[in-house]
């Protein structure tokens, strides 16, 4: 490790670990997801550190930018108070899980550490000779093109399968579409607008004066039902000569 790499590594390693622990320990599902976002960002930086800038940024765009965003989207739709239940269904399950988890992490960690302790990176210059992106592209589209396409077919199958499973078949007419609702709104017998207020085109501002529809007819719906419909006579509605 060069100095810069070591410094960045030792700075970024703590947020990465804190994110991993926080993701397991926090009760709130959204806080868990946010801690995971922190870890994924740090992992992206680690990729960039190890001369793989394309994978590092793809990690940030795809995993943190898109996939975790979808996670958050779903969690928010579920509701903000969706916390984990703390009741143990199996007795001693939590203790066993903690012990086994720590043991497994220790095993993997020591194994990797002993295997890679004093190794130096081999062939990094050759791999990145024509540029990192070009190197990945030439591998993906020549040697591994079949594996690449098979993976994408697998992902598409998964997406189509999820859609088939989650799709609810609705009978025609069960749920009205937006254009249908608009047509129904303007169909005969339905009043499309807000109800006219009292006194619209009326000769008086009394609440008992019914509003007028655009064709001039009076509408009873504009006044309260306990009030009798009342229209002023021309004599009553004319100016009383009080101005000036």
């Amino acid at each position: 490790m060069s100095t810069g790499e070591a410094v960045t590594f030792w700075i970024m390693v703590w947020p990465a670990l804190a994110g991993a622990l926080g993701m397991v320990l926090s009760r709130n599902a959204i806080h868990s997801a946010l801690w995971l976002v922190l870890t994924m960002l740090c992992v992206g930086v680690f990729y960039v550190l190890q001369s793989a800038p394309f994978i590092g940024l793809a990690q940030i765009i795809v995993y943190t930018g898109a996939i975790m965003m979808l996670f958050l989207f779903v969690l928010m739709l579920v509701g903000r108070d969706a916390s984990d239940s703390l009741i143990e269904t199996l007795r001693g399950q939590r203790l066993a899980a903690v012990v086994l988890g720590i043991g497994f992490a220790a095993l993997v960690g020591t194994g990797v550490y002993r295997a890679l302790d004093d190794r130096t990176a081999n062939g990094l210059e050759q791999a990145n000779a024509n540029g990192n992106v070009q190197g990945i592209a030439s591998l993906l589209f020549t040697k591994y093109v079949f594996a690449f396409e098979v993976t994408s077919a697998l992902l598409i199958t998964a997406a189509v399968g999820a859609m088939v499973l989650a799709h609810i078949e609705r009978r025609r007419g069960e749920k009205r579409t937006q254009p249908e609702m608009m047509r129904a709104r303007f169909a005969p017998g339905n009043y499309p607008g807000p109800k006219p207020g009292p006194g619209v085109y009326a000769t008086s501002d009394s609440v008992a004066t019914p509003g007028r529809l655009p064709d001039g007819t009076l509408t009873d719906r504009s006044i309260s039902q306990i009030l009798p419909t009342r229209e002023l006579t021309p004599a009553e509605s004319a100016p009383k000569g009080t101005e000036k």
């Binding site: 940024l57 765009i61 943190t64 930018g65 898109a66 965003m69 958050l72 928010m76 903000r80 990192n132």
Partner: peptide
């Protein structure tokens, strides 16, 4: 400048959503 600088711009605009989404969610 890095060999993948434009991806950095894309990543930043992708991460900027978090500010808005979390602000909306955290307001309660």
């Amino acid at each position: 400048d890095v060999p993948v600088a434009v991806l950095l711009i894309l990543a930043c605009s992708g991460m900027a959503v978090y500010g808005i989404v979390l602000g909306g969610w955290a307001s309660g």
